[in-house]
Write a protein that binds this DNA or RNA. Structure first.
Lengths: 207, 207
DNA sequence: CGATACCTTGAGCTGGTTCAATTCGCGTGG
DNA sequence: CCACGCGAATTGAACCAGCTCAAGGTATCG
């Protein structure tokens, strides 16, 4: 444990500050302690929000392809990081860490596949329900879930327009599944209904 | 090299035969020598084609989430595989292999992100052009690209119906970008046009 | 030849986009 | 405190890309 603490450093970022991704300087692995991170992909027509990271989630090492995206802080961020050399040093002592590292990337792969299903097979209502349900679960199922991004950016992640996102969110509010004291604050009244609306309740139950 | 050959085994599969994925028995890493593999995801409403593997591409170890999908052969398949124990043994001798293993999973992550962009941001024409262009490149840019799956399955991957896939493919044929001696055989006349039509030509060039 | 499985094409429908107003939350200055 | 302004969210209405449904067309095989 002492060894781990020597190798990891706690980095602080302000809102909109970029987290370095250049393999030489960037964190090799990271654990998000506080705040949110956003990953923007650079596409031919400007940047678009691609993924969010919530507290307790990890950053895993990036392959050469992945570096194209921008990673930046939303609000104040505390990030526990470790560079490649540091990781090599503790991995030498604790070989099991290498397997954990593989698991980290695999978890991201699973996440990417969930988005693939969302984008490939779900309609607008299911997409928005899925996002709300995922974010709610990933934030530890709080009474009030915080949306760290606006409707346009939710739309970018789900492949929808801001208008469609807004309509679906309001529909859930009218249906009594959520309450919206503010556009960015969502009180989840019925998490089960959200999951059902997301269209993958059965898969979850079968496993 | 001799050590590698002792650890890897060459497995043969027939068309539609399933490749084991149980983490205990499944190939831990694999190199596809001949034929094609398909990966089907089990969703609430039946199985759907998720991804294809072409000769020369690799199979990487699966996280617990990923095992839900079915991996099976399309036609006659030669697969060079290695189980977890075998991998541990040679990795002990050749530490660099561990990093390559990570790179393998990262490559899959990059691929998943390409599909995420396709499904989230592209229209039908761009999706079909992207698929054709990717498959063409991954098969080594042959004069005649082989589509190992039917229109319905192309549609499942791209989030389109078989009819839309058919219409777009015919449109490319009429535009003189491809030729279709048979529905499953695509002579790529103008690979550059395919890439332009796919909508990510600029990104490619910038890098 | 007939059967089968896949592909193609057409016609209408519709979910989601687009475009164009409002409306809301909130900081600012009078 | 209230009017004002601004950015985001919401709402409405028209439109259209892709879906659905239906009717052939075509390669392959026994």
């Amino acid at each position: 444990m002492r060894r781990v603490r020597r190798v990891f450093t706690e980095d602080l970022y302000e809102g909109d500050e970029a987290v370095p991704r250049d393999p030489a300087r960037a964190p090799f692995v990271g654990l998000l302690l506080d705040g949110c991170l956003r990953e923007d992909a650079t596409s031919p027509d400007g940047e678009r929000l691609f993924a969010l990271t919530f507290p307790g989630e990890t950053l895993s090492p990036l392959g050469p392809r992945r570096c194209r995206g921008r990673l930046s802080a939303i609000g104040a961020v505390r990030l526990l990081t470790c560079d490649r050399d540091g990781f090599e040093r503790i991995a030498q002592a604790v070989p099991r860490l290498r397997l954990n590292l593989l698991g980290l990337v695999q978890e991201q792969l699973a996440e990417a596949h969930r988005w693939q299903v969302l984008l490939g097979r779900k309609n607008a209502s299911e997409r928005v329900a899925s996002m709300l349900h995922w974010f709610h679960a990933r934030q530890g199922a709080p009474a009030e879930l915080h949306l760290p991004v606006n409707r346009t950016e939710l739309g970018q992640m789900a492949g929808l327009t801001m208008e469609t996102v807004s309509r679906q969110v309001r529909a859930f509010e009218k249906a009594g599944v959520i309450d919206l004291p503010l556009p960015s604050r969502v009180r989840v009244i019925d998490p089960g209904a959200l999951q059902t609306l997301s269209g993958d309740a059965r898969t979850q139950r079968l496993h």
